[in-house]
Design a protein around this nucleic acid. Structure first.
Length: 912
RNA sequence: GGGCGGCUAGCUCAGCUGGUUAGAGCGCCUGGUUUACACCCAGGAGGUCGGGGGUUCGAACCCCUCGCCGCCCA
């Protein structure tokens, strides 16, 4: 006997350990099985599980469990990302907190050793948190981006692309993060709107004949100005082009040049040009052969290019000092407040500087071409499809990708410099040495590039590096291309696009066939969760409070095509209740002897009730299978919820009660077993042993199907119920965990329209009757008979046979077939049949008149609308025949029902 | 400035390629010791589908336009 409620706290750890120990997370060995692989978006080793991870990994687990049960060789390959900057930051902070030496004092090797130490100790946090969610990853294949194997892949890719000239070294402006003293890529730059100032500076003409005014938000950059530009067609400045100004403070002459970049509409129309510190100015500088003067050091302090009193000043201190100097010189022409976009490092949060350095770049444009084509041709599809636009937009305008980082934690760039700066690129040092020997004719000392690669460089290889590439492993042959990638839209550019590029380049095949972009989880008010706002919902806390299944079901159900999910505790509670409901329904059927029957075949059940639920189960299985097959997670959850609660629990179990129980109740005469002819036979089931046994077997069968269908979303609860019901009746064909049980594959022939009609009539009779009672305030204790006033012979038979059910569920004393309803009986119409409840003594005539009036009114509106439609010759001529026919039937039904209710209304008048 | 989403019941959202009386959950109201479940049961109220125009026999759905709200890229 089951406990009263499901206890996730005790069940979850036990089941997870058992699953893991069983080896069931690994793909099956069968070489003929179709494969289905997912590579996890590797969380940062520094990470801990947030709600976004919970969503992302729940969906992956739903898919992998579904496909595993479908008999595929399902692989969910887990791992973590070394996360260059993030991890280096964490460890540096820890060193500082412990009062240890700084990174620089420690030196590179010792620092990196410290990071590995940290990783060994704290790097597994998120992996354990994933387990609490129920993630069925194949942990035996877990990888880390800095593993030896993955590092070998990184080196091989670097060397290959270098040889193909798709990786090159270039001196250009990069986004420089002065906090970490490293270059970062465009994508790691966040534009933030901040308050600032526009300072208007006067630059005196060199010959003393006047001045030209320029405006800037970054005064300190003027120390590196090498020109002033005006628009070539700007009338005001024609006479100045080719002349020069004397740069204040620096006291250097700089030319006045003509360039389209200057916008005559803005400010004075003249603009200062600092090619070494501004991306636009850099282009102007290139076009006009201007010198590029870098005035910063790596910390964005002023360097020796500036006058001595500025050297060593932080950029913001220098800014202040420059403004003061202009004011003192009488050259400050104005200050305006402004709000403007300023680039910030996404990790450091400090203002990023355009900075002129030598870096390594990937020619992304070339790599992007096949990646664009693959999506255009549908080799890889996005779901929802709308994201393809975002992908195309970026890929078609892609910029060179800066891949070198001046960090210590990461893949060291496999490039060595000779004494003269000549570069030798090889997978290992001896290769570089050999090249150098060849080049110089002798051994020369080589120095390896100090830099490491952008973290995303190694993540881009994830779908094949984790499978063993560049080795030709069995896994690689078997599981590449993977099937589905589940990820967030925030990393389409960072990661998805780059995996597409690298996968196609090195494997000649797309890395995945489908990319499902999941939504962003927000708080109940729709705000992005963030620590600073304090609105973060900790998934582990939610798992503690409601169980992993409730959280999983919630995330699955809310994961529609929308861009965000507004998560609230009420919602999770509701789905926790759903789990409890199924638990209790199981408990109930177990109490009533539900048990699997040996050789049970759902096609051969006799009772309409059982035939009906078998059909509904089939419909649900079809719907869930179709939905999960197309990433329709919300639709799958919805079908399950409605079926389990609204059909199985509310109707099937309720209707089965009289059949299952009270075996001592006298059996009705077992005459005429001709079910078909009579349209149904529910009553004779009551107390009848065959009927009872059939219902017990059917209930057990339906439950097993439910457990299977629900398992991908609620793995713990279903597995627990599977285990708890293992001993009830005949053993299951599948002896192991539900996790590896075969997915239901039910033929349409199990759907029986005749049974649907029988149960439909019974259900409607009860539901409508309840509605009548409730609206007229008929006391619960009243037990009138249900009168069948006007119905077809088949309907009469169904209702008569269903008497025990109707008696119990509608709280009536019996079902009577009558010629006419007695005065004061309350009529209602179900599927063309007129039924009545003689409850005149309880009712308020006015209330009943109102009720009937409302019904008649509703019908009149419907009749009117439908009649108009049918009166429209165009409609009859142009609409499909079945639509017209449907409307004709509808009109006839509504008119008949209306006539009956109007007659009742008249009789009501007569009563009073 | 360019682009992408969204606007449907008090709240959160479903509504597939145009044909339903526009649905669900939560909340609300009424009633409930009924072979499991109060994390429950029964019933009910509540929507001119953001505004306007168009296409169509027929529009929540397609087209145009306007208005908010959100996100991405400049």
């Amino acid at each position: 006997m089951l406990e009263k409620t499901f206890d996730p706290k005790s069940v979850e750890p036990r089941l997870y350990a058992a699953w893991e120990a069983s080896g069931g997370f690994a793909p099956i060995d069968d070489p003929n099985a179709e494969t289905f692989a997912i590579v996890i978006p590797p969380p940062n080793v520094t990470g801990s599980l947030h709600i976004g991870h919970a969503l992302n990994n729940t969906l992956q687990d739903v898919l992998i469990r579904f496909e595993r049960m479908r008999g595929k060789a399902a692989l969910w390959l887990p791992g973590t990302d070394h996360a260059g900057i993030a991890t280096q930051m964490v460890v540096e902070r820890q060193l500082a907190a412990e009062g240890n030496l700084s990174r620089r004092d420690l030196g590179r090797d010792d620092f990196v050793a410290k990071v590995w130490e940290w990783k060994a100790k704290s790097g597994g946090t998120i992996v354990n948190q994933l387990k609490r969610l129920g993630a069925s990853c194949d942990w035996s294949r877990e990888r880390f981006t800095l593993d030896e194997g993955l590092s070998a892949a990184v080196r091989k890719v670097f060397v290959t692309l270098y040889k193909e000239k798709l990786i090159y070294r270039d001196k250009r402006l990069v986004n420089w993060d002065p906090h970490f003293q490293t270059a970062i890529s465009d994508l790691e730059v966040e534009q933030r709107e901040v308050d600032g100032h526009f300072w208007h500076f006067a630059y005196p003409l060199e010959d003393g004949s006047g001045e030209i005014v320029v405006a800037t938000t970054r005064p300190e950059t003027m120390l590196g100005d090498t020109a002033v530009a005006v628009h070539p067609k700007d009338e005001r400045y024609q006479h100045l082009i080719g002349r020069a100004v004397r740069l204040p403070i620096v006291n250097r002459p700089v030319p006045i040049i003509a360039d389209d970049y200057a916008d005559p509409e803005k400010g004075s129309g003249a603009v200062k040009i600092t090619p070494a510190h501004d991306f636009n100015d850099f282009m102007v500088g290139k076009r006009n052969n201007l010198p590029m003067i870098n005035v910063f050091d790596d910390f964005a302090r002023i360097n020796d290019e500036a006058p001595p009193e500025y050297r060593g000043l932080d950029r913001f201190a220098a800014r202040k000092k420059v403004v003061e100097a202009f004011e003192a010189l009488g050259l400050l022409r104005g200050v305006e407040k402004t709000r403007h976009m300023v680039p910030h490092g996404d990790r450091s949060g400090v203002v990023v500087e355009p900075y002129l350095t030598d870096q390594w770049y990937v020619n992304a444009e070339v790599l992007a071409r096949p990646a664009i084509k693959a999506v255009e041709e549908g080799t890889t599809v996005f779901a929802p499809k709308a994201w393809e636009k975002t992908y195309f937009e970026w890929m078609r305008n892609i910029q060179p990708w800066c891949i070198s980082r001046q960090l210590w934690w990461g893949h060291r760039i496999p490039a060595w410099f000779g004494p003269d700066g000549k570069i030798f690129v090889a997978e290992a040092e001896d290769g570089a040495r050999a090249q150098a020997r060849e080049h110089y004719g002798r051994d020369e000392p080589l120095r390896q590039d100090e830099d490491v690669l952008d973290t995303w460089f190694s993540s881009a290889l994830w779908p094949f590096s984790t499978l063993g590439w560049p080795e030709k492993t069995e896994d690689l042959a078997r599981f590449y291309p993977t099937h589905t990638l589940v990820t967030g839209f925030d990393i389409i550019f960072f990661w998805v696009a780059r995996m597409m590029m690298q996968g196609l380049h090195f494997m000649d095949e797309v890395p995945f066939k489908r990319i499902f972009i999941n939504a962003l989880v927000r708080d109940a008010e729709g705000k992005k969760m963030s620590k600073s706002k304090g609105n973060v919902m900790d998934p582990l806390e939610l798992v503690d409070d409601y169980g992993a299944d409730a959280l999983r079901f919630t995330l699955t159900a809310m994961s529609g095509q929308a861009r965000d999910i507004k998560l609230s505790r009420e919602r999770i509670e509701g789905y926790r209740n759903f789990g409890t409901k199924l638990w209790n329904a199981t408990r109930f059927t177990q109490m009533n002897g539900a048990a699997r029957a040996e050789g049970f075949d759902p096609a051969t059940v006799k009772l309409p009730l059982n035939r009906w639920i078998v059909g509904e189960t089939t419909r649900t299985a079809k719907a869930v299978t179709a939905a999960l097959g197309t990433c329709g997670f919300d639709a799958a959850a919805d079908s399950l919820y409605r079926f389990v609660w609204r059909q199985y629990c509310d109707w099937y179990v309720e209707l089965a009660k009289p059949v299952l129980g009270k075996p001592d109740e006298p059996n009705p005469p077992p005459e005429g077993v001709d079910r078909e002819a009579r349209g149904g036979d529910a009553r004779r089931a009551s107390g009848d042993e065959a009927a009872r046994d059939e219902t017990r077997a059917t209930a057990a069968w339906v439950l097993d199907v439910i457990l299977k269908l629900l398992h991908p979303v609620m793995p713990f609860l279903t597995e627990e119920l599977w285990g708890q019901t293992a001993g009830l009746g005949a053993p299951r064909a599948h002896r192991g965990f539900l996790m590896t049980a075969p997915w239901p594959d039910l033929p349409d022939s199990l759907i029986d329209p005749a049974a649907d009609a029988v149960i439909g009539l019974i259900v409607e009779t009860i539901a409508e009757g309840r509605s009548v009672r409730s609206e007229l305030n008929v006391p619960n204790s009243a037990r009138p008979p249900l009168m069948v006033v006007d119905a077809t012979a088949a309907q009469e038979a169904v209702l008569r046979d269903a008497e025990p059910l109707i008696r119990q569920m509608l709280r009536v004393e019996g079902v009577e077939i009558v010629e006419a309803a007695p005065a004061g009986a309350i009529p209602y119409v179900v599927e063309g049949a007129t039924l009545a409840l003689p409850v005149a003594e309880f009712i308020d005539v006015a209330a009943e008149r109102a009720r009937l009036g409302k019904e008649v009114g509703n019908l009149a509106v419907d009749i009117d609308r439908t009649a108009k439609k049918l009166a429209n010759a165009d409609f009859v001529a142009r609409a499909p025949e079945e639509v017209v026919e449907e409307n004709r039937e509808r009109l006839a039904d509504a008119e008949a029902a209306k006539a009956k209710l109007e007659a009742a209304l008249e009789r009501l008048g007569a009563v009073v």
